[in-house]
């Protein structure tokens, strides 16, 4: 039970600690946090993937 509580406590505290000094990218007048850049980059990647990856429609080719 104690182990479970410890595990739970660790879980809700986050396995990867994102508190602490933030990482920022400076590019000319642009400043963006690494986290936001990852999110926005992922959006573009996912959008491209959604268009490019073949979708098997029922009874269809591709």
């Amino acid at each position: 039970m104690q182990t479970l509580t410890a595990v739970m406590g660790h879980m809700v505290g986050g396995l990867i600690n994102l508190t602490g000094p933030g990482h920022y990218i400076h590019w000319g007048f642009i400043q963006i946090s690494a986290a936001n850049l990852v999110v926005i980059g992922l959006m573009v990647v996912v959008f491209a993937a959604a268009i490019l990856i073949p979708f098997r429609r029922p009874g269809g080719r591709d």
Binding site: A50, F55, R57, G60
Partner: peptide, 11 residues
Amino acid sequence: PAYVASWIYVF
């Protein structure tokens, strides 16, 4: 319709 065939539709 048959043209509804892309992952973009799931978003």
